[in-house]
């Protein structure tokens, strides 16, 4: 086992996959000579060469398209969005080109690509360096969406995403990059976390909290605080937002009968809305209380600290919502 940061876990996963498979390459802005804006790809170009670590012009469409075209002909490209917000420029490539390729090739041409980049708020990044628009791709057929919260998952999920035969959008919460540390397995273990499997990060009896990304850490902190009040939270880290692991959610709900969904994205139309809808539609009998959601307000992520704090969900928000559910 190795003790590493969240960032280092992602870095090592990509490094080891590039060592393992000569078909894996990466492309992005400033990823080669500089090693990436956050240093996730530091040392890659020196080691793997400029043909496998491509310093691209500021062209998100081309960056993703290069991965798509290469994937159609047997390669596995990793596209870095310097900030995942910039994926909006490459939206057509993800949704209309990569997402549809297998379908319109009659199942013959899978597109194994990973589009990855730093996401999320809480760092004063303002409008274009803070977003969590995973719902865009959650809504898109043919595309998978991953968002880990811990180094071991980030490591195992990145490896699985690179080996997966489908386009994967991989959200790396920048708040976690250097704040979160943990042990990851040694390369010899060939550790993989399968896409589509949630993980219970804390067992509890009273309320099921379903969340992912940085919000997992918020939920765990809320659970600690509520423990002292005698309220027991079970915290489920989805890890993969799509495919969505409903099984793990349902298993927990059978025990707790109360559901709190926490996500950092704008509340309306978010991933949590779909989870709530599925439970209400198919598993209404399991519930002893209305479903609650804690999410960002339906706004942009603003710059000034009081504004950002007002928009994004907090540990307090989770604690208050859980108290209400516990009292119901």
């Amino acid at each position: 086992m190795r003790e590493v940061t969240f960032l280092e876990a992602i870095r090592l996963a990509m490094w080891e996959e590039m060592e393992r498979d000569p078909n894996v390459f990466m492309i992005g802005e400033d990823i080669g000579r500089m090693g990436g804006a956050f240093g996730v790809t530091a040392g890659f170009m020196e080691h793997f060469g400029a043909d496998r670590v491509i310093d691209a012009p500021i062209s998100e469409t081309a960056i993703i398209a290069v991965c798509v075209g290469a994937a159609a002909t047997g390669k596995r490209g990793i596209a870095e969005m310097q900030f995942i917000d910039f994926i909006s420029y490459g939206f057509d490539q993800v949704v209309n080109v990569a997402g549809t390729f297998l379908y319109r090739s009659g199942g013959k041409t899978p597109i194994p690509i990973v589009v990855r980049g730093p996401s999320g708020g809480y760092v004063g990044g303002s409008l274009y360096h803070s977003q969590q628009f995973e719902a865009w791709f959650f809504h898109t057929p043919g595309v998978k969406v991953v968002q880990p919260a811990f180094p071991d998952d980030a490591y195992g999920l990145m490896k699985a995403s690179i080996r997966d035969n489908n386009p994967v959008v991989f959200y790396e919460h920048k708040y976690l990059y250097r704040r979160v540390k943990g042990a990851i397995p040694d390369p010899s273990e060939d550790y993989i976390v399968k896409l589509g499997e949630a993980r219970v990060r804390r067992y509890g009896d009273d309320i099921t909290v379903v969340t992912y990304g940085a919000m997992v850490h918020f939920a765990l902190e809320a659970a600690q605080r509520l423990e002292k009040e005698g309220v027991s939270l079970e915290v489920i880290d989805l890890r993969t937002v799509k495919p969505l692991d409903m099984e793990t959610i349902l298993k927990s709900l059978e025990k707790t009968s109360k559901l709190l969904i926490v996500y950092e994205a704008p509340k309306t139309g978010g991933v949590g809305a779909e989870i709530a809808a599925r439970i209400a539609e198919h598993s209404f009998e399991l519930l002893d209380a209305p479903i609650k959601r804690v999410a960002a307000k339906d706004a942009f992520v603003p710059f000034a600290e009081p504004l950002e704090k007002f928009v994004l969900p907090s540990v307090d928000d989770i604690v208050f919502a859980a108290r209400e559910l516990a009292a119901y």
């Binding site: 899978p110 194994p112 043919g142 399968k194």
Partner: peptide, 11 residues
């Protein structure tokens, strides 16, 4: 043909 699961790294 919406997803290709032949790589076996998905649930």
């Amino acid at each position: 043909d919406i997803y290709d699961e032949s790589a076996g790294v998905s649930k």
